[in-house]
Amino acid sequence: APQTLRDRLTAHRSFIAEFTQQVHSYDGELVQEGQGVIKVLSPDHFIWQTVLPDEHLVQSDGNTVWVFNPLLEQVSLYSASEVMQDSPILLLAESDPEVWAQYRVRVVGERYEVTPQVTGGNIERFELQFQGDKLTELLIIDSQGQRSQFTLTSFTAPAKLTEQEFLFTIPADVDIDDQRTQPDAG
């Protein structure tokens, strides 16, 4: 049987790739675009850094997910356990079979179509395209038919990544929006 998607994603203990993102609305209009880097260190360690048109960062060390927006001088903190399964991007680093069980995966050649078991959420489905063992595309289609396509290049696996790298230090004079369920004492 074809390698399951989870096997494919966790085949690399770690990877780095560059991405360009284009978002098109249901009628094909370009809504947003961006460029950046994705770093993944299994399990659950993840950096998704957008650099163009402006800086934006989503980072997880498996416990906390930081969403940092330097231009807006704001960082939001979430419990990883809560947001992990909501965002397809974070699923790239997800290894927990229970989380994956909430999705139906269909394989067409080297393209995986992933649909949430529970429908009605704002994500209709997302697709991952591989070439050999390289992930080359992530496409997210939302309930309005909006399509967010990430084209990945310079896919490097394994990548020299350390866990410390995934710990985010909050810069000074930045608004902190802590939405974690039980923020730790620290």
Binding site: V23, V31, Q32, V58, L72, D142, S148
Partner: peptide, 27 residues
């Protein structure tokens, strides 16, 4: 609460269109 999003605002005379998109690209 506080939310952050990508913004796309278009104006054509009196017609306007505002689209707020999440960072992964969903509307």
């Amino acid at each position: 609460e506080s939310n952050t999003a990508n913004l796309n605002w278009q104006l054509a005379g009196a017609d306007y269109k505002l689209m707020l998109t999440s960072f992964i690209g969903t509307s």
